[in-house]
Amino acid sequence: MAVHLITGAGSGIGAALTRRLHERGDELVLLARDAGRARAIAAEFPGATTLVGDLSQPGRLSWAFSKQPLPERIDSLIHIAGVVDLGRVADLPPTLWEQQLAVNLIAPAELTRLMLPVLRVSRGQVIFVNSGAGLRANAEWAAYAASKHGLKALADALRAEEAEHGVRVSSIFPGRTATPMQERVHQQEGTEYVPERFIDPESVATTILTALDLPRDAQITDLSVRPGV
């Protein structure tokens, strides 16, 4: 039975993937930002283990984990959690840059660093659920796109560094997906949100499962997913 550590399991793509893995009987370790959120996620996915760690404070993750029992085995670390705040470069305050870089880039780097010893033992896999913004930057998306471009660089460097340990690294780049984050983006853009126009989170979950379940003789390095219409 495979063991998966997942961030962002509470909604959107993360919830869809977690449901699929739970239904097939895999073992789940779900990261939550606080104890209350951990209880809610544990109730939604009976049998899952939870870890508490605030991704907006990546420098405290090591301390937080030192107070909790950690899994002895991890077969995959799946980074899905993220935040987005739009704004023109001329208007974005440092706090919004810092928040997006912390959650979207620095926290995945630190969480990966902390989990690498067990991932090496299992010859496991790290999956970064990135974004189309990780490949191109549009007006008013500077901070978010910068964090996601950085996430691609993190994945590429990690893949080269960990190949000798048998750790596979994949980046998934979904286009606009019908999630609560997408609804928030539309509120910031001042446009109508019509979920049917975008990718279903289940479709992105299927893509992630494809990367997870690929036989060991291959790995998906970079995979873009776009709306069908």
Rank of each mutant, 00 (worst) to 15 (best):
G10N: 13
L55Y: 14
E110P: 02
E196F: 08
R73M: 09
V185L: 12
V194E: 12
L92I: 09
S147Y: 05
A90S: 15
G25E: 10
A48S: 15
G25K: 03
A218D: 03
F65L: 14
R33P: 03
L86D: 01
V169S: 06
K152D: 12
N104T: 04
N130R: 09
A143I: 08
P117T: 11
H4V: 05
A211H: 10
G10R: 06
R60V: 09
A218G: 05
V129D: 05
L92V: 05
E183A: 15
A81G: 06
R73E: 12
L51N: 10
R159G: 05
K67R: 15
Y144M: 03
S122L: 01
S66F: 11
A64C: 09
T210N: 13
S203Q: 12
E189R: 13
Q219E: 13
E44R: 15
L92P: 00
V83C: 09
V121W: 05
Q125D: 03
T207W: 00
Q219N: 04
A133F: 09
A35Y: 08
A64T: 02
L17P: 02
W63N: 00
M181C: 00
A142D: 07
D200A: 13
F173H: 13
R113Y: 14
V3K: 02
A137G: 00
L223W: 14
L214G: 01
S170I: 01
V129G: 03
A178H: 14
T207D: 08
N104I: 06
L209H: 00
T49F: 07
N130G: 08
R197E: 05
A32W: 07
L77V: 06
Q219A: 12
I220D: 07
T50V: 11
A211L: 10
D85I: 02
V3T: 15
I172W: 11
F173P: 01
T221Q: 15
S131W: 04
L5H: 00
L77H: 06
A42K: 11
Y144G: 04
E164A: 15
S11E: 14
R20Y: 01
F128I: 00
R37Y: 01
E164P: 00
L101C: 08
D54F: 10
L86F: 15
S122W: 03
K152T: 15
